[in-house]
Computed example of a mutant assay.
Amino acid sequence: MHDVAYKPHEEQHFESTETVRDIVIGLSDGLTVPFALAAGLSGAVANGRLVVLAGLAEIAAGSIAMGLGGYLAARGDAEHYASELRREREEVVSRPQDEAEEIYEIFEQYGVSREEATPVLQALERNPPAYVDFMMRFELGLEKPAENRAHRSALTIAGSYIAGGMVPLLPYMLVDDNAGALRLSVWITLLALAVFGALKGRLVGTGALRSAVQTTLIGGVAAGAAYGLARLLNHGS
């Protein structure tokens, strides 16, 4: 018999879910909101330049607002984590028995008896930082936020919003006829949603085709609803 060299199994996991989430938020809103604004204005005014200027203004304002929202959300998550971390560090020292019972309860959820969990508890008690980290993850379900997460989230969402917003607005920059620009904008926006959905599906492992169809349908419905509302308001005025 020949010895077979052992090759360790390497698991591939996607670890940038927060970044993907920020891109999804920025692109989805960027593709739908400027589209609805430009489409609604194209039915109310004949000046394509005015549509483009209004669209650019909306993209600028929307990217700032969305980026600020992402910043505040990420900052809030970081502050919440820091607050819970301080509390957990205090409880490990001041209430060791209660924390030990919580360890047993956590392992009990996985079918591990108190006797089997005791050596693990003792090992954690000898390593307070690991003990606190274990409780943060498995008791509270909190992961330590990445450094500069708030700034990266703001920039990612804002940049994605701008990129998404330019897609439906581009036809109005290239085509003089508003009706023709609107038709082209619809097709380009749907194509962008499909491509974006496929890429997202490949990144997160949910399947490119399924994600493309889902993203196109959801984004198309959202854009159609926003467009319908914009036209309704234009006719009402």
Rank of each mutant, 00 (worst) to 15 (best):
L169F: 01
Y131R: 14
L140G: 06
L203Y: 00
A194D: 01
M173E: 06
G111S: 06
P145S: 14
L170K: 08
V132R: 07
L203E: 01
R210I: 00
L184W: 13
D177S: 13
A163H: 10
P128W: 05
V221Q: 03
A198L: 01
F138R: 13
E116K: 07
R202E: 06
R183Y: 05
R126A: 14
V204I: 15
L203C: 00
V213T: 14
V132W: 04
L203K: 02
Q122Y: 04
S160M: 04
D177N: 15
L182I: 15
D176I: 04
A150L: 09
I157C: 07
M173I: 11
R137L: 14
E143H: 12
G219N: 09
A222D: 02
R183K: 12
E143P: 06
R114C: 05
G141T: 11
D177H: 11
L169R: 10
M135Y: 02
R202Y: 04
G207V: 07
N127M: 07
L155I: 15
F134H: 09
W187C: 12
P145T: 10
F196G: 02
P129Q: 09
L209N: 00
E143D: 15
L170A: 12
S185Y: 05
M173D: 04
A198H: 10
G164E: 03
V132N: 01
S153W: 05
L169M: 08
V195W: 00
E143L: 14
V195T: 08
M136T: 08
A212K: 08
A179I: 12
V112R: 05
V167Y: 01
A192P: 02
K144D: 09
G164Y: 01
V186K: 09
G207F: 02
L217C: 11
G205I: 04
N127H: 10
R149H: 09
P128I: 13
A150Y: 04
V167T: 05
G164H: 01
S211C: 04
V120M: 13
V195I: 14
A179G: 15
A222L: 02
P145E: 03
N178S: 10
S160I: 01
A123E: 09
S185N: 07
G197E: 05
L209Y: 03
P145V: 11
F138E: 15
G111Y: 11
A130V: 14
K200S: 10
N178W: 05
W187H: 02
G141N: 04
L140C: 12
V167N: 04
G165D: 01
T215S: 00
G224F: 00
I218M: 11
H151N: 09
Y161R: 11
G205P: 05
R114N: 09
G165W: 14
V195G: 00
V167M: 06
S160W: 03
F134Q: 10
Y161Q: 10
A158V: 13
A117M: 06
R126G: 12
T156M: 02
L142D: 05
Y172K: 12
S160D: 02
A225Q: 00
T215P: 03
T118N: 10
V213C: 13
S113R: 12
M135T: 05
G219L: 00
P171L: 03
L170G: 07
Y110D: 13
G205N: 08
